[in-house]
């Protein structure tokens, strides 16, 4: 039972993790994209429809990534090139994405979709407790962990990552050193969009293989919250996503066992827990200040 509970938590946490890790990169470059929900739902509808039409779930995944990135490109064009307000543009992107996905998905409602197969490493996946958890999950689960590790290495172990962080912390001085602030921000935002699209595909191809309108149901917002929760550190996003997933699943189990607490109160637990942890973390002022991208949400226009 423990094994399957952990598996459930992993399924709940993985889309949050993927979307959050992408947004983290975008925010590290100084761009706040509140349109995660919109890009995610576009990824979900694209992943579903393309896989159904082409017969290949993987093609669906790729298409979802591309569409997510394309939506992010639109966001980038508005906020980076035309210097529109990032908060408002992100919200508009969410609105737009919810609408467009509904239009595209209209004819796919009520059709069972493709399911992305499970990676099953023989023998090892039969190990007790951790077997299926470590060796028998869907491919995107592994990808989410690889992504996190990759992003952590990229940000803190490579020159390019250093440049990206420099752009997020002090775009003016990065610019003075000859770094293309706008170029890097474009790439970071598009990476964020690609991840959001992938997270959406996870929903419609792994989590619940079907398409229904608004099926993201606010997960994009949770992903945004996780980035802050993790104080912009990749590994902490994993902790946050699994904590959030754990509390969510835990309250369902508590109900199933028959704990007599109003379910609304249990449902609000993940949110309250997030706030509490956040307050505890932010007590350490030096640490948070160090990690917060100093120019987050502020536009930068190179002077000529």
């Amino acid at each position: 039972m423990l094994e399957s509970v952990l598996l459930t938590i992993a399924t709940a946490a993985t889309p949050l993790l993927i979307a959050a890790i992408g947004e983290l990169v975008a925010e590290r470059s100084g761009v706040l994209n509140l349109g995660v929900e919109g890009m995610m739902i576009m990824g979900a509808v694209t992943g579903f429809s393309v896989s159904l039409l082409s017969g290949s779930a993987w093609l669906g995944v790729v298409a979802a990534i591309v569409v997510g990135a394309a939506f992010a490109l639109l966001f980038g064009f508005l906020t980076l090139t035309l210097v529109t307000n990032q908060v408002a543009t992100g919200l508009a992107l969410t609105l737009f994405g919810l609408g467009v996905s509904g239009m595209i998905g209209e004819s796919f409602v009520g059709q069972p979709g493709m399911r992305l197969g499970v990676v099953d490493i023989p023998v090892l996946s039969d190990l007790p407790v951790v077997g299926r958890l470590v060796f028998g999950q869907d491919p995107l689960f592994y990808l989410s962990l690889l992504l996190t590790a990759g992003v952590a290495y990229f940000l803190f172990g490579t020159r390019a990552g250093l440049m990206l962080r420099a752009v997020g912390d002090n775009p003016a001085s990065a610019h003075a050193q000859g770094i293309s602030v706008i170029g890097i921000r474009y790439l970071a935002v598009m990476f964020g969009g690609a991840c959001a699209g992938l997270a959406g595909a996870y929903l419609s191809l792994v989590y619940t293989p079907q398409w229904v309108e608004n099926m993201t149901a606010g997960r994009g917002w949770i992903a945004l919250a996780l980035v802050v929760f993790a104080s912009w550190r990749p590994w902490r996003v994993i902790a946050g996503a699994y904590l959030f997933g754990g509390v969510t699943i835990g309250q369902l189990h508590a109900q199933a066992i028959g704990v007599a607490i109003p379910s609304q109160m249990l449902s609000s637990l993940p949110y309250v827990a997030t706030i509490v942890v956040l307050v505890v973390i932010s007590q350490n002022r030096r640490l948070t200040m160090m990690n917060t991208p100093a120019s987050l949400g502020r536009p930068f226009v190179p002077d000529r």
Binding site: S4, V5, T8, T11, A12, L203, Y207, T208, Q210, V212, N214, M215, A217, R219, T248, I249, L252, H253, Q255, A256
Partner: peptide, 12 residues
């Protein structure tokens, strides 16, 4: 209506 949550509930 929240497919994800409903599926989590079913699993639990």
């Amino acid at each position: 209506f929240d497919p994800g949550k409903e599926s989590d509930a079913a699993k639990a």
